[in-house]
Amino acid sequence: MTALWSWPARRLLLGAGQTAAVVLLVFALTEALPGDAAVALAGDQPDPGRIAALREALHLDRPAHERLAAWAAGLLHGDLGRSLTSGRPVSSLLADGFAPTLLLAALTLALLIPAAVGLGVLAARHEGRLADRVISALTLGVYAVPEFALGVLLVALFALRLGWLPPTAVGYGDDLLAHPAALVLPVLVLLSRPVCSLARLIRAGMTDALASPYVAHARRCAIPGSRIRYAHALPNALAPAAQQLARTVDWLLCGVIVVEALFVIPGLGTVLMNAVAERDVPVIQGLALVFGVTAVLLNLGADLVTHRFAPRAAVAA
């Protein structure tokens, strides 16, 4: 049992190191950008005296390593610091941004998994026949469309031409759930590419599994067909799909900047954009920390799932 537990523990330690490295790198890159929060705050009429006063007030005149050390010391107490521009605690900023992002991600996932598995299994069952060719061609085609293009297309068609759905979430504030119509287009755009990649992976895995000797053996044992498909063949197709799914969830939670910007949804992506524009270093670092931890946990989860469904494959520490 120790071997079983020491592996996730090692992975978590390694992940902590990786997250720290990401935070450091992000800090260094933000420092390397021209301008700082004082310049951003000073606005259109930069007056050198005012900028210097702002720098002093924000402690930006202290050397970079001291500021990093102060931030890290605060982190040890669970304090992510305060935003330089708004003065609000970073944790509450992140929490505000996280709610819409999580809502979008959860809705997308809830539709993504059944749709991708259903399409993949359907295509694999009819391998080489019409259903398979239609699904394979469509998924490849849709996958090739970048989400901003698809987003613009959908908005033009359903919001502007037909007027069925609101074009953006402007004005709905934080209460997106009360306006489900505003969520339809963003979720569709978010779904489009992951459904395709996941369905194609499931199809490939299922095709192999359905042609395998163990499925033929299960058929000889007179097991009902749907039971064979879902309980015996599908688990073999899940290992690669789990990895892809982890990447998708990671993207949904940390990187849907384009979709949030297009539909004006105040999620984490928007928070990140604004923070970078304003050189709001504590917020950027808080985001880097959250994104790093999410990525580490999701990938560990995916590896555990893979280990469960492809137990022979050694998992890299």
């Binding site: 163990y214 097991i223 290992a239």
Partner: peptide, 26 residues
């Protein structure tokens, strides 16, 4: 049914499921 024990039994055992799975389903 006619039972079959192939030369390489590992090929007819599902690598992703514990051996109980097929036995229980039968």
């Amino acid at each position: 049914t006619v039972g079959y024990v192939p030369q390489h039994p590992a090929t007819v055992l599902n690598p992703a499921r514990p051996v109980a799975a097929l036995l229980r389903d039968i």
